[in-house]
Design a protein around this nucleic acid. Sequence first.
DNA 1: TAGAGTCCCTAACACCGTTAGATACGGCGG
DNA 2: CCGCCGTATCTAACGGTGTTAGGGACTCTA
Lengths: 217, 217
Amino acid sequence: MKINSEVIARTALRLLDDVGLDGLTMRLIAQDLGVRAPTLYWHIKNKQELLDAMATLVYVEAAERLEPPRDGSAWEDWLADWARQLRQAMLSHRDGARVLAGTYVNHETVHRAVELNLRTLRDAGFTLSEAARGFPAVLHYTIGHTIEEQAHTSAAYGDDNPYTPERLAAMVDAERFPLTAQASSDLLGMDGDTGFEYGLRIVVLGLRAAKQERERG
Amino acid sequence: MKINSEVIARTALRLLDDVGLDGLTMRLIAQDLGVRAPTLYWHIKNKQELLDAMATLVYVEAAERLEPPRDGSAWEDWLADWARQLRQAMLSHRDGARVLAGTYVNHETVHRAVELNLRTLRDAGFTLSEAARGFPAVLHYTIGHTIEEQAHTSAAYGDDNPYTPERLAAMVDAERFPLTAQASSDLLGMDGDTGFEYGLRIVVLGLRAAKQERERG
DNA sequence: TAGAGTCCCTAACACCGTTAGATACGGCGG
DNA sequence: CCGCCGTATCTAACGGTGTTAGGGACTCTA
């Protein structure tokens, strides 16, 4: 297969699932491509640029399936689905959120997604300014949640992950922090999906409430 | 000054502001302490443990000033202030959000903060379960926003930061993405505070809306 | 056929986190 | 006073990292 920057990024993304972000070295990627490490520098400027390209691939993976809302479907559902797709794209790669976080992706597919977000919200009665300031909130929540989620389930801990619900629950002093102890199952015992959905609902409800407050003046 | 793990973490945190996370090496930290790198390993297990200790310091910095809400003050304001303090603690160190993200901090001060969050929300009429599932949403939004914010203003780019509003605005094709182009000042021209406050308001409004929906049944 | 451009190589550099093993220094029991 | 033990530091080094320099081979084109 012909080597170019996108092929390198795809290979790196595949290897990422095996070795994790810390184990992803230029030499390993090169080996997988049947080539020596310095060769990669013919195609990419440096490792950071490679990481950016990987982030772009993940982002595009989430954005390319995005379609305008069908007639009659609620903007709340459409927006929540977009957040779910983004989260799934990150979850589908080990350390995916860490790769994505803080990488401003510049790709046509992403511009399309932004435009679609703005149009959908504006068509639903938001002002353009509300839409432009509001939908990043969904984005930031989604990224923040997924980073935390992936960090806690990280395979990097091997067999002694300190984030098991039991371990964490054992740490809080039930005398001094009674509510924390009482709520530990809600705080820690939730699987990622449930926790994400709860917060996502809050953000979407918040967007609706902000719009209504403006409409009422 | 006597060296111990906390002194090392404090030193590392101070150096972080000068050199950034990627420039923070064990040898540099040791030099600043008037010591050689291997000496650090007498006091800490490895670099990851040091990073965890640094994250703990930042987190505690935000949490230790936290006080119960004064009588009569609204839970919305109290919760928003807590988020602002956390954000300020991250912003007060270069790459602070990256250091914090994904590090589950286990420290008494943080337990206290969690307990205080739960109590405040429950006293305001939330169920304990609502509080336990709801306040992480604020946390995740805050972390997500601040990571993105710090990445875009990162000094790592030197003089050619690609995230200036002008550069980004120039990238979008106004013909194909008219709303994006039109909203570019709202999307990009905002300073971090304004954008953060807008999203924070949305999350808080969302919590209130979720509570009201339950109360109405 | 000469030259230019493309793509890959070997060799090496500077630096990284980390370990092994020796060395100094203090207090304490005999 | 001596010898010992725990504490805290050192030097030397290992295997690894991202990255650069410079040299070949191959292909296309004039």
